[in-house]
Computed example of a mutant assay.
Amino acid sequence: MEQPLKKIPQQFISTSNHPVQGSHDEPVCAFCIILSETAEAKPAVYNTPIARFDNFILLPTLGPLAIGHVLAVTTTHTEGLLQCRTEIRNEYDVIAKTLREYCRSKGHGLLELEHGGRSRSGRSSCILHTHVHLFPGLNHLVNLFGSRLPPLDESPTKLTPGDVAYLWSRNERSEYTWDATEAIGQESRRALGAALDRDDWDWVVAPNPSTISSSIEYWRSYSTTGLRQ
């Protein structure tokens, strides 16, 4: 029988780009709360660590859109993979290689997708903390935004943080970066919902707890044999 989700704390489902306030009036974001040792929701299934690395943690996601859909989240507060320090980006690339190899061993390609950065007008993803979506079996959708958003002329790695919001995708053969200045809330999920002909793309409305459990199970062998501390 499907286990009901615990009540999701309000700060986890806020669509505001403004951080919530922690103790001593220090701003914190939803992922920072999840990563905190004192997070009230830490025992919940959707916060179960799958693998840990020096600068990343692999976590389930609410409302997974594929079996195995999880997130690679930075363990410190950063605002986009492509604008992280070089050593963090390099570590991610090493991790991503092992993720692709693991998926390949299961007969799947891997789609990596991120809505990162922040435009000068303040537009960004719903949660402004680096989190790369990982989708086993959806690698054929690497050019997901080709007809929705303009390409980004210059790599975000060369731009000042706070100057650009972007959408980035990669599979084993191709890589794309788009200008997300005009992107709307849950742009990635909206686009995937349209591509997959699914109406349950909104993780707040459709958290899909059974698929969360299946996604954790998908990566179970990776958590013991993959690259980790």
Rank of each mutant, 00 (worst) to 15 (best):
T15I: 09
K158Q: 12
S23I: 13
G68P: 06
H115G: 02
P27Q: 13
D25Y: 15
I184Q: 15
N55Y: 07
E114C: 06
G63A: 03
A194D: 14
L82R: 10
N139M: 04
I216W: 04
R52P: 10
P161T: 00
K7G: 13
G80K: 01
A183W: 02
R100Q: 08
L81R: 00
F53H: 11
T61I: 06
I34M: 10
R220C: 11
N143Q: 15
L134P: 00
L144S: 02
L159W: 06
G137H: 09
R85G: 15
S147Y: 09
L128T: 02
P49I: 12
P150A: 11
A191E: 05
R52A: 14
K97W: 13
W201G: 03
S214F: 05
G185W: 05
V20M: 09
R228P: 07
I67V: 15
I8H: 05
R220F: 12
V94Y: 11
R189A: 04
S215F: 08
H131C: 06
H129R: 03
A180M: 00
H18T: 15
F12Y: 09
E101P: 01
L59F: 06
T224D: 08
L141I: 11
A72C: 10
R89E: 14
D54W: 06
G22P: 05
P19M: 05
Q21Y: 06
I67E: 13
R104E: 15
F56Q: 02
G117E: 00
R85K: 15
D197T: 12
H133Y: 09
I216T: 01
S214D: 08
Y176G: 08
P64S: 03
P4K: 09
D25K: 14
I212L: 08
S147N: 15
L71I: 00
T157D: 15
T160I: 12
T224C: 07
T224L: 11
P136L: 07
V28D: 05
T181I: 06
R228K: 13
Q3V: 12
G22V: 02
L65Y: 01
Q186A: 14
D25E: 14
E112W: 04
E154A: 14
T157P: 09
G109R: 03
S14R: 08
S210R: 09
L113M: 13
P209M: 08
H18K: 14
P9Q: 02
I33H: 02
V94C: 09
N139F: 00
H108C: 07
E79P: 01
S119A: 11
E114A: 01
I67K: 11
I34Y: 01
P9C: 01
P49H: 13
V94K: 13
E154I: 05
D54K: 11
P161D: 02
G68W: 10
E40K: 10
A195E: 06
K158M: 14
H77T: 07
S174E: 12
Q83K: 04
A41M: 09
V132L: 07
N208P: 06
G193W: 01
N171V: 03
P19I: 01
K42I: 07
S188P: 15
H108L: 12
T98H: 15
I95E: 02
S174P: 06
E37K: 12
R52H: 14
T48Q: 14
